[in-house]
Design a protein around this nucleic acid. Structure first.
Length: 1059
RNA sequence: GGGCCCAUAGCAUAGCCAGGUGGUGCGCACGGCUGAUAACCGUGAGGUCCGGCGUUCGAAUCGCCGUGGGCCCA
């Protein structure tokens, strides 16, 4: 049996019950198994990092995934969807360090690496479990029971195996490079781990003394004075013009000679407060090559004495500051490249912890970021400081601990991505990107600028680099699997592949000596990079990989362009030479309602839990899916969520509305079928069925393009506009009839059909609500039906039921009803009062036809007794016509008599005047016995509308509402006024629908009493009275007595229960 | 400094690719309905379509230059 439902939509309990039900029947695994054997749809979950609670963006991400997968599954795809977790890396180490109160790597070493690793693992697993629950609460169906986890052995093997492929292909390289370095974490960090924001730093102009030229200097500019001890060269642009100038401050005798870019001479001199200058020479950058200079701090940094300091050419020099760039090959990317090119010393006198080494002489032991002031005063002492100031500029920071990064030249392991860049670019074109520019513009741009990927980290909690190096002969070997490691190390059984255990495993080199593992771990981005095969347990197992890989679909936020989209592409190119995915949907970010990033410091963070608490998961889901195109940033707005919630609530009411009647009538959809009601379908029934099928079609089209907003918005429109505001209003009277009325059964069948199909259509987006409707309306009646809606097939569009012409007609009718209602307001006639007549002046034949075929709907919805349709040139004869004289035309023609003519036009017969002017263009007007002829330009005609008639326009023409009162209409109107008030009183007493009452109505006005009495029997029926007294002398008394003012007439009514 | 995206009423959005009188929802004001009723419906007021320049008979739409926001990079 169909059951009635609660009055209010209560998502929290409903959703919880549904999730419990899913658990109890194993709905998720069954729904997947059901499709085994069908076409596979291989989805790879971008693994969230296990640091704690999910935020709105993560929720949105999983909601998109879940909606698409549910849709695919209902469309008979066999969905593969292991959830994934990113569980290694510096972020977790940093959190654990914070918990343990650690400040540096020394603390970790003292605490014990094995214990530290254990803490990290515990942290990752605990958070994975917490986050799993939060995702489940959103109704997200992924394989939560058997997720892929980057810390598992089989996963680590996938990473190892991939690196081995890189090694075999000659793409793995160990080399000294300048890397982003976090001096707190004491590790290299990837470009993608650097976070930029504005910071105040010194802005200094420094003079380097030119060798063998008295009092002559090259002027450079820098924001990192601490790199001056490591200065090896300066660079100029070969094409720029430079000037050699003599400059002085007030006293020309104390002048200096300076080399500066010509265009910047004045700027620099202003900085140094020089008062005047003269140009000695001008030259191109390339002419500066023979200059050499002294490092100003060479007395403090003895190692500098051993270096030459010369000028070099570089294209990266810009015409800013001085046009000459200070080069420290140990401390800058460009500097390093220039240094390698010219075989300069890569001088890097800084330790991993950011303190100077003994190579830095007197600066040894000082933290580089602390010595800026000291170095500046040393420079000043030596007369090398031209200007010191401050500047606010973008500076990089470790994105975990927020420490400003420095650049250090260190030995690291690299994957030579730059070697395979072109292949990557051509693979990008083979992938379908949604939206297109995510791949063709954005991703392609990032890849074309890609540099070699530094994959080594000097840390603990990560996948250890599987590289073993011989102590003796420096032979390198990369291990690809655990089995390989067992063989090479002569160890048996499962090996712990994490640090520190794996650090102790040695293997024997060809040369007979021991090989030791390099101590580094992988950059954590490499972990998730291998997800598309690691989640299939490749290379340990091959079967799934051969069948499924590459992924059919992935989706992540646009920050992952440089992240997971890229890391996967890189790793896959190395391992397999092709893209690891076929379709990529890039989604946006969640921002606050002002479009600002949500952040703890701004205090504008909204958690998904908060939203679910207020409105439930389904409303949150529908909100994030419908409010934006997926690839646009979502400005979270509470009001909009609440609007969605209102829509869902209306849907709940729509669903609830027919249930009491169906229950009362024992409606059974297995007996009442389409065939049995087919011949009783009204036009509005056929209309809503057509709309329903058209809706499914548009949802299909949108979903095929992953356009979730274009799928969900029409659903919401359908529910509000078509179902709630129209269809339910239309069928209301039919549900009231008693007995086996075929007209009523037809309405039931249609409503049932619509609800069941809509439940299926909303299933991907609002899975809980959809399931609960399905359980009540389908599974509840038919135990053989699938146990869950999410095991059902997606509804097929029934072309035979689609009638777009009818949809258009209904649209017209609705506009007409609106116009009529508008016109009623103008004559102040409530809808409760019938009107005598509505006249439609249609714009074209289609509109007229719409009125003809949907006449019944129009009559009912406008509460009107008769509809009249005018022909194309016809005007309604009850409208008056008014002649408006045109003085502009009359004046010149009649001069002094114009006034008389105007007056005569006003009193002439309007109809015959118009007819004559239309037919012949002339009209004979009589003025005081004389006849004058006027022409058509002299008069304009306006329709005049009588007071009881109002008109309003609509998209297809004009409607006139004739609200003239007749006795019948007044009588019906007053009767309905009385009925409404008695119903109101019933409700106030909270009576049952079926309950019978006694009612007394006292109306002192005899005329109105008389009018109401015409409808006495009808009133008694409508308000279910056993005894009804309507009179002018029986005093109302009983359970509830009220006085009313009905259109200015006082009435007193009472109702009482009859026991 | 560079790449990509975004900017339309108080708020949120459609329209932009394929130029032709800018729609819709929320909120607001007024009104209606009355056994979906702590629900629902109608009407109305609200727009230099971010700014400027250009192309065109005509620009929210196309182009260029700015401004602001987002992501990514240097």
């Amino acid at each position: 049996m169909i059951r009635e439902i609660t009055n209010k939509y209560e998502p929290k309990t409903l959703e919880k019950d549904i999730r419990n039900y899913w658990d109890s029947i194993n709905a998720y695994p069954r729904s997947r198994q059901l499709r085994a054997g069908s076409t596979d749809f291989y989805f790879v979950d971008g693994p969230p990092y296990t640091t704690g609670h999910i935020h709105l963006g993560t929720a949105w991400n999983k909601i998109i995934k879940d909606s698409i997968l549910r849709y695919k599954s209902m469309n008979n795809f066999h969905v593969r969807d292991r959830a994934g977790w990113d569980m290694h890396g510096l972020p977790i180490e940093v959190k654990v360090e914070e918990m343990l109160g650690f400040k540096s790597k020394k603390d970790i070493e003292e605490y014990g690496v094995d214990q530290f690793i254990a803490k990290c693992k515990e942290f990752a697993i605990r958070h994975k479990d917490e986050m799993t629950q939060q995702f489940k609460d959103l109704g997200v169906w992924l394989d939560w029971e058997d997720p892929y986890m980057t810390l598992k052995d089989e996963y680590i093997e996938a990473a190892w195996w991939t690196l081995k492929q890189g090694h075999d292909k000659g793409l793995l390289e160990r080399g000294k490079r300048v890397v982003n370095w976090c001096p707190r974490c004491e590790t290299a960090i990837a470009d993608s781990e650097v976070e930029y924001w504005d910071e105040e730093d010194p802005s200094v102009y420094i003079k380097f003394k030119v060798k063998d030229e008295e009092n002559t200097y090259i002027v450079i500019w820098t924001t990192t004075p601490w790199t001056i001890p490591a200065n090896i060269a300066v660079a100029v642009h070969p094409g720029f013009e430079y000037s050699k100038i003599r400059a002085w401050k007030d006293n020309k005798d104390a002048s200096e000679v300076l080399y500066i870019s010509t265009s910047l001479v004045e700027h620099v001199l202003k900085q140094g407060r020089y008062t005047d200058f003269e140009t000695l020479d001008r030259m191109l950058g390339e002419d500066l090559l023979e200059l050499s200079y002294d490092n100003p701090l060479s007395d403090k940094v003895p190692a500098q004495a051993g270096f030459d300091h010369n000028v070099y050419m570089a294209d990266f020099v810009t015409a800013e500051n001085t046009g000459i760039v200070h080069i420290a090959p140990g401390h800058g990317m460009d500097d390093f490249i220039l240094g390698v090119e010219h075989e300069l010393p890569i001088f890097c006198p800084v330790c991993p912890d950011g303190r100077y080494t003994s190579d830095a002489g007197e600066y040894e032991g000082k933290y580089v970021k602390d010595v800026d002031e000291l170095i500046l005063s040393d420079l000043e002492e030596r007369g090398n400081l031209l200007k010191k100031g401050m500047v606010s500029h973008r500076y990089g920071h470790c994105w975990r601990c927020k420490t400003p990064i420095i650049y250090l030249a260190t030995r690291q392991w690299f994957l030579k991505v730059s070697d395979i860049k072109d292949e990557m670019l051509s693979e990008i074109e083979k992938v379908a990107w949604y939206p297109d520019w995510a791949g063709s513009a954005r991703f392609a741009d990032w890849v074309s600028g890609a540099r070699d990927w530094c994959i080594s980290r000097q840390r603990y909690w990560g996948i250890p680099l599987p590289i073993w190096i011989c102590d003796e002969c420096t032979e390198e070997e990369v291990i690809g699997t655990m089995k390989e490691l067992q063989e090479r190390s002569n160890l048996e059984g499962d090996l712990d592949l994490h640090r520190p255990n794996v650090d102790n495993i040695t293997i024997t080199c060809k040369c007979g000596q021991n090989m030791k593992r390099v101590p580094d771990v992988f950059d954590v981005w490499f972990d998730s990079a291998v997800a598309s095969w690691a989640t299939l347990n490749y290379p340990r197992e091959h079967e799934d990989f051969d069948k499924l890989w590459p992924a059919d679909f992935i989706t992540e936020g646009h920050d992952q362009t440089r992240g997971w989209f890229y890391s996967q592409m890189g790793a896959s190119m190395i391992a397999f030479g092709r893209a690891p995915y076929k379709n990529v949907l890039m989604h946006g970010f969640t921002l606050d309602d002002a479009g600002k990033k949500m952040s703890k410091s701004l205090g504008n963070v909204v958690s998904p839990g908060e939203v679910m608490d207020k409105f439930g998961a389904d409303s949150l889901r529908f909100y994030v899916l419908s409010s934006n195109a997926p690839w646009e940033d979502l400005k979270f707005n509470w009001d909009e969520v609440s609007t969605i919630n209102r829509m869902v609530n209306i849907f709940w009411n729509v669903y609830r509305f027919p249930l009491p009647y169906m229950v009362l009538d024992n409606f059974d959809p297995s007996v009442v079928t389409y065939d049995s009601v087919k011949s009783h379908l009204r036009p509005e029934d056929r209309w809503i069925l057509s709309r329903l099928n058209s809706l499914i079609l548009s949802v299909n089209e949108a979903m095929d393009q992953y356009n979730l907003h274009r799928a969900t918005r029409p659903i919401s429109d359908f529910i509000l506009e078509d179902l709630s505001r129209w269809y339910v209003q239309l069928i209301r009277p039919r549900t009231w009839t008693e007995g086996d009325d075929p007209d009523k059964l037809a309405a039931y069948w249609v409503m049932y059909e619509v609800l069941v199909k809509i439940a299926k259509v909303i299933a991907p987006f609002m899975p809980h609500l959809a399931e609960s409707i399905y359980q009540n309306l389908v599974h509840n009646l038919d135990p053989d039906s699938p146990k869950s809606l999410h095991m059902c097939d997606w509804p097929v569009v029934e072309d035979a039921l689609v009638d777009t012409g009818l949809e258009k007609q209904m649209d017209t009718i609705r506009n007409m009803v609106e116009a009529a209602s508008n016109a009623r307001q103008k004559v102040k006639r409530k809808l409760r009062w019938p009107v005598r007549k509505i006249v439609v002046s249609p714009e074209n034949e289609q509109v007229a036809q719409a009125v003809e075929s949907l006449m019944s709907v129009l009559l009912e919805q406008t509460n009107c007794k008769e509809i009249m349709i005018l022909g194309s040139d016809e005007t309604w004869d009850e409208l008056g016509l008014e002649a408006v004289p045109q003085p502009k035309a009359i004046g010149p023609a009649f001069k002094g008599d114009a006034g008389k003519v105007i007056a005569a036009i006003g009193s002439a017969d309007v109809i015959s005047m118009r007819d004559a002017l239309v037919n012949s263009g002339e009209y004979e007007l009589e003025i005081a016995g004389e006849t004058v002829t006027i022409t058509s330009g002299m008069v304009r005609f306006n329709e005049t509308i009588p007071e009881h008639i109002a008109s309003a326009g609509f998209s297809g023409g004009l409607v006139y509402v004739d609200a003239m009162l007749t006795r019948e209409i007044e009588s019906e109107g007053y009767a309905r006024e009385v009925i409404r008030r008695l119903q109101d009183m019933r409700k106030e007493l909270d009576l049952d629908v079926e309950e019978r009452i006694k009612a007394i109505v006292l109306i002192k006005d005899e005329r109105i009493l008389d009018l109401v009495l015409d409808w006495e029997a009808h009133i008694a029926d409508e308000v279910r009275t056993k005894l009804l007294v309507i009179s002018m002398d029986v005093e109302p008394e009983g359970d509830l007595v009220k006085e009313w003012d009905v259109e200015g007439t006082g009435m007193k009514m009472s109702i009482s229960k009859i026991s």
